[in-house]
Design a protein around this nucleic acid. Structure first.
Lengths: 154, 154
DNA sequence: CCATTTTAGTACACATGTGTACGAATTGCA
DNA sequence: TGCAATTCGTACACATGTGTACTAAAATGG
């Protein structure tokens, strides 16, 4: 059996992301990371902590992402009246305007990804990807949500 | 059918890479990017341009990667006597020493990735990943090897 | 044989991600 | 109630990646 699954996955995802990012920037002016965040704001306002949970990145990355997006007028943050530490994030009109185009682009990507694989095959692929997510979550039991409470093994 | 293939792939690969990188650094002191490069140097010396072709990143990224690895004493570069522009890259003893451990780690990752998927399912996954590679290569016909000779469409 | 084009690699500015350390607000509990 | 622990978000240093612009060497072709 194939010995290079790990690197093949890396290769495929990097190439895909590189192309998707270039296309997305060219057609909408947004990076894929910004687009992913904007999708989460279809129904806003949302607390920043929820965005961190919804996205596959750590909170420090979201801080920077939001800062750049706010600079570009795509989102606005205001203090959560119920929690003086938290921010409520909202897409601006300029941000919301991007959504239809982004949705069409995402659909294009997904169609291309599906290629001519049939439902059974796609189901296998999706199960495989979910298996990766599950496995890594098991390896880093606390990393997803609770950061490094018990990361003393390093 | 699943509408989120694109983001699911992104999620899975990011989680995998994050975990693999942390583990690799903890057990061998190398990042996954450095490990991938070192694997390519099992038979050295190799011209840097070959490394660029073998890795899923652009040449500017390889420049920095090699600089850091050379600083850490993992590789050495010397001018190609046959081509005054090119470098021949070689793993040092310290670099080569890492290889067995890296191979074992890679095997561990690949076994975990395969989980209990059978050969037919893994074949489907591999075909899917190769399909992505092929598709992105078709989208950016010149990007892999020839950079941006005909990227005027941007 | 020289001028033009291509190729190898670096430099630079930037985006995105990581982990760690921190301040401030909130929560939990004695 | 009040202090300790937790949580939210930012700051910082850094690694890794991108595209673009550049230098210098090599290849090409009249």
């Amino acid at each position: 059996m194939e010995r290079r699954l790990f690197f093949l996955l890396n290769l495929a995802q990097r190439k895909l992301l590189r192309y998707a990012d270039a296309t997305c920037r060219a057609e909408t002016g947004l990076s894929v990371a910004q687009a992913a965040l904007l999708f989460e704001l279809a129904r806003d306002p949302r607390p920043q902590s929820e965005l961190v949970e919804a996205l596959p990145v750590r909170k420090a990355a979201v801080t920077g992402l939001l800062a750049r997006m706010e600079e570009n007028g795509l989102v606005v943050r205001r203090r959560d009246p119920a929690d003086g530490r938290a921010w409520l994030v909202e897409a601006t009109d300029a941000g919301r305007e991007r959504l239809p185009k982004l949705r069409r682009l995402l659909k294009r990507f997904n169609r291309a990804l599906q290629g001519d694989f049939n439902d059974e095959e796609l189901d296998t692929v999706i199960r495989f990807l979910n298996h990766i997510v599950t496995w890594t979550d098991q390896q880093e039991p606390s990393a997803s949500r609770k950061e490094h409470r018990d990361a003393a093994h390093l």
